[in-house]
């Protein structure tokens, strides 16, 4: 049962009447992506248009979420609405999983099929003989033409291992925070949520460091053949998600500080926690398939 206020009719599903945020968001998307496309095509106006678009999207996010938070706090959402939100978040995370699956698929394809074939294994004997003679399959590789020049890789057991531990412990801290929330204990909630944010930031700091080292010292870049491509696209999109997750955590922390959630009414918190766990699991996949193996 939701703790409905006087405003809400608990028997009835809340259907909002009209909203301007989506159309604002569409303009934001158009300007952001259109601006980016102009930028890529070396149009001077591109960055400006894109910045405008991002600003509009931020405006939209604040406005839209603000409305939802106000409604939530006012208690107009009943249990059923809460379930809709939960399903929405779950399936959104599933779509994100499939997005990463495309890049993992590319990694597996390159490692298991294209590189061995170019290197003459299995069905690739003729390919190697006629086109890439002398190229021996290996991983990591930047291909028979050494696209991007010789490079070194980042050893798994240094910073990546550390980052694994950091993310894993952040999964623990956010769970503790969640338990605290459910037990109605504000203080541990704030502390452990805060810790999670710190761990997220530390992860990002190390990740940034690792990228810098890769570019400056190891000559490992986005252009380092298929290894560089898969490495940076996977870790890059993951890093982007960590960044997003951290921002979401910060928002949740602020909302907690304002006393927004209560013991059994805190979808916003759980959504962010799910997201954080998702980011965590993706990292485990990355650690295993990108760094270790």
């Amino acid at each position: 049962m939701s703790d409905a206020t006087a405003h809400a009719n608990p028997g009835v599903y809340y259907v909002p009447h009209g909203t301007k945020w989506p159309i604002v968001g569409s303009f934001g998307l158009l300007f952001t992506l259109g601006g980016a496309a102009f930028w890529l095509n070396e149009h001077a106006a591109g960055p400006m248009v894109m910045a405008l678009g991002v600003a509009i999207i931020l405006f939209m996010v604040f406005g839209w979420f603000g409305t939802v938070i106000r409604e939530s706090v006012a208690g107009v959402y009943n249990k059923q609405v809460d379930t809709s939100f939960r399903m929405g978040m779950m399936w959104f995370i599933f779509s994100e999983v499939m997005f990463f699956a495309a890049f993992f698929g590319a990694l597996f394809y390159a490692r298991a099929l294209s590189v061995p074939w170019i290197g003459g294994e299995g069905d690739g004997a003729l390919t190697n003989f006629f086109l890439w003679k002398g190229y021996a399959p290996a991983w990591p590789t930047n291909g028979p033409e050494s696209i991007g020049g010789a490079f070194e890789t980042i050893p798994a057991w240094g910073v990546p291992l550390l980052n694994t531990l950091i993310l894993l412990s952040s999964g623990v801290t956010i769970t503790i925070a969640h338990h605290a929330l459910r037990a109605g204990k504000r203080k541990p909630l704030m502390i452990f949520l805060g810790l999670t944010i710190l761990l997220g930031c530390t992860f990002l700091w190390y990740q940034a460091h690792e990228y810098m080292e890769a570019y400056k010292e190891l000559n490992l870049t986005l252009g380092s053949g298929v290894y560089g491509s898969t490495f940076f696209m996977l870790t890059g999109f993951h890093g982007l998600h960590v960044t997003l997750g951290t921002i979401m955590l910060i928002v949740i922390w602020l909302r907690c500080a304002r006393g927004h959630f209560d013991r059994d009414h805190h979808f916003g918190f759980e959504a962010v926690a799910w997201y954080w766990h998702f980011v965590d699991v993706v990292w485990l996949g990355l650690f295993l398939f990108v760094y270790v193996l």
């Binding site: 698929g105 033409e145 560089g228």
Partner: peptide, 19 residues
């Protein structure tokens, strides 16, 4: 400058078709 679909860099145009 990525090489997902470029054999010279270890990728494969056919990989795109699979995805």
């Amino acid at each position: 400058g990525t090489s997902f679909f470029n054999a010279a860099g270890g990728g494969d145009p056919v990989m795109y078709q699979h995805i």
